[in-house]
Design a binder for these strands. Structure first.
Lengths: 110, 110
DNA sequence: TGTCGACTTGAAGAATTCTTCAATTCGACA
DNA sequence: TGTCGAATTGAAGAATTCTTCAAGTCGACA
């Protein structure tokens, strides 16, 4: 019983659907980073960051390697940047549209 | 109070994170479609489809227009295809070990 | 007007995901 | 060995999202 493709896609996007996970992926685009460094840049408790890292790890989009007493995370593939870029393009359009709508709404109520 | 960008991104991806919503977006890439036609292609109850369409509408990624007694949905000008392509590329990498899905990914049948 | 078909909405419970706390593992080092 | 710092895990409750059903709106048409 194979998982339908559209369900795999949905799971993939849901995996991306968390602020902390987004920030981790963006930080890792500059290269591998230790958990300690991620913690310094993201406002979140260690246990919570770990939980989100676990989600990313389970999906396979990042890898973790122990180096001495710290753990270093890295992107498992190179294409995440493209995805983020495409998302940003759409998001920019959507937000611009919303601002437009908001402006008109304000006019109407005045 | 502006919404942080990484949170807007997370919300955007979460909006995509549902099998029915993914299928709707893919179907709409071929052009506008009436709800009736979406219902014929997606196995889901009308009220459920409506709920998922409402999520897409609220996010602004689709628009709905009434035409006679039916309602027609369309992509709201955003280039969703690029996003899907980037996502498919990453998914292909992630699933490279699981040949079960790989074949269909390349065909992009769903 | 009254009814039918197409679609949406509200509400309630089920299911999933998030956050937090406490406990745990693993390596480093005295 | 004993302890410290770094990171993870398990568990419980909170919060969010999904699904379903019943009721509702809106246009078409007799």
């Amino acid at each position: 019983m194979p998982v339908p493709l559209y369900q795999a896609k949905a799971e993939f996007f849901r995996m991306l659907g968390h602020p902390v996970r987004i920030r981790v992926l963006e930080l890792l685009q500059d290269g591998p980073k230790a958990v300690r460094d991620l913690l310094a840049e993201i406002e979140v408790e260690p246990s919570n960051l770990s939980a989100q890292l676990a989600v990313l790890r389970r999906s396979g989009i990042v890898t973790a390697t122990r180096e001495g007493s710290t753990v270093v995370y890295a992107l498992a593939g190179a294409d995440v940047a493209d995805l983020m870029k495409a998302a940003r393009r759409i998001l920019t359009e959507l937000l611009a549209g919303q601002n437009e709508l908001l402006a008109r709404l304000r006019e109407d109520s005045a």
